[in-house]
Each structure stands twice: as structure tokens, then as C-alpha cells.
Amino acid sequence: MAGRDATKEFHEYHGPEVLARYIKDNQSLCIGRLDTYEPEVPIEHRTDPHGAFGTQEPYSDPSWYRLHWQSPYYKASHREVRRAVRNFVSRIVSPYVSDWEQARRVPRSVFRQLGAEGLFAAVMCRRCPSRLLTTRSSSSGVMSSEKELNKEDADDDPAVVPQLSGKNRTSLSSQAYKAADPDLDLSIALPGNVPLEEWDTFHELVTLDEFSRCGSAGVCWSLLGGICGGLPPVMHYGNEYLQQTVAKPVLRGDAIISLAITEPYCGTDAASVRTVAAIEPDGSAFILNGEKKWIPNGKFMETDMNQSIVP
């Protein structure tokens, strides 16, 4: 519809408040009629106030980054996010996807690197309680170099997972847990150092879009598939104990999480799962019996870990 009168089509799908909202937020837009419009600058000579992005070759980047487009959704901060994530993916992920596919695993150090750069927080920030995330100063928000990543490769041990015991019962008191671990902040910066309050769904979409440039569905599923499905319910509904022992390590990249719904009997029909959690007579624990299938990150092999190729 670009360049044509889309008034009728627009009002078929949107209320009048939508147009007013974007006009208010974006000073480069205006409401008017094309038949009476006399532009001061011809459309073909217009430039996006945020500047062009990428090489401007057709289809090499999303079309809204071309000079003549003025998207109301993508601002300067979205370009910064795209630039930062593209830089990270092109250096840390893309060169190694074939090796990781062959090795059938992604090194744990890469998860830690993603966590340190705020890329895990970036793909769920709309559901991320602000108390778990603080904005880091811009001077420290520089993407880590490959050299730093290589330094971490030797540390490929699994994350420390809390041992299950009756002692966890005492942790139901959130106040007691806060006293034991006063460091409640993650101190992770979002990509492009975008402030948390300005982060929107389009920033998240840009992040996921840039990850797809690595060209490997398996790597994308491993790095982001589990956390996008498994962590938001924990962050949104989990108690204080889960926030501290699960959400924080996963956002930092120290632990990996996966969503386990699909079963051999029902596939993705979440309402028909057969795995049973019976409650113990004293109410202290659940006893689980059943089977889950097709779970991402469900089969990293210790032997593969020792032999796999790391960047």
C-alpha cells in the first residue's frame, strides 16, 4: 500500500487512537490527504531521519531500513540493537555453526557469552521483572572479543544446580533468601545499551531476526528455543526461590533451561499430557512419573563435550 491512499484499509483494521498514538511518538509523521499534499521535498529525495542501515542492497536487510522508508516502529535504538547483535552473531556464532552442528552441541561458554551480553534478557525483557535487570553504564557495555570468549572455553563444566533436599523447604521465606543472597541485581545491559524502560517487542524481534542470520536452525533452537519457551513462565509466575535459583542463572547464561511439554502420546497438545506429579503425604515434594520427548538441549553428551569443536 506504500505510496497509495490507504485510509479505507487502515480504518478497517485499526481504531483512530492508533494513528494518533504514532503521530504523537514520531515527529516525522503527519496526517493529511495525498490529493492536496504538496511536499516540500520530493519523496524520492527524502531520507530517513535515522539514516540508512546496512548495504542498501535489495533484500539484504529489512526493507524499512532503506532511505525512503520512514517506519513508525523502528527507531534509532532498534538500529543500535541490530548493529550490536549482528556484530556478536557474525563474530561469535556464524563462523562456528557448521562445527557445532557436526559436534551436535553448542559449547556452554557460548551460553555464558550470550548471557553476559544481555541477549537472553533481550528475548524476554517484556516479561522480565525489572528488579532482575539493571542498566549497565555504557562504558562497560562493549561486546566481548573473541579472545575473551576463547579464554572461557576451557571452563566447559555444567552449571551448578541446587541439590534437591528437604533443606529447600526453608527457602520458602523470600526474606530469608534475600538475607542469604543480598546481590539481587543481574547487572546485565541490554544489547545496544537500550534502557530497560524503552525496550519493546520490536527490539526483541530485531534480536531474534539477527540471530537467524547465522543460518542454522539447530543452533538457534539450542541457544534461544529453550529459554524463549521455558523461562518466561518461571519469571512471570515463579516464586522468589525460583527467581533466584533458576531465572537469574539462566539469564546470566550460567544455566540452561528447556520447555518440556511434548510427549510421545500427545505431541504438543499441552492439555493432554500424561506425566503425573503425585503429592507426597507430608506435602513437601512431588513424585514425577512419565516421559517427555523432543526436548531441545535434551541430549548433550559428556563424551561429545570433550571432543567437540569450540571457537
Binding site: 555444567p158 552449571a159 544446580v161 529453550g226 519457551g229 521455558g230 523461562l231 513462565p233 518461571v234 533458576v246 542463572p249 539462566v250 544455566a255 540452561i256 533451561i257 528447556s258 520447555l259 518440556a260 511439554i261 499441552a270 499430557v273 506425566t275 503425573v276 506429579a277 512431588f286 514425577l288 512419565g290 517427555k292 526436548i295 531441545p296 538441549n297 535434551g298 541430549k299 548433550f300
Partner: peptide, 9 residues
């Protein structure tokens, strides 16, 4: 494997 599974039961 993963360190945590968010599991529907």
C-alpha cells in the same frame, strides 16, 4: 542436558 526443565505435568 539442560540444567532445568519447565515441565507440564
Amino acid at each position: 542436558t539442560s540444567d532445568f526443565f519447565t515441565m507440564a505435568v
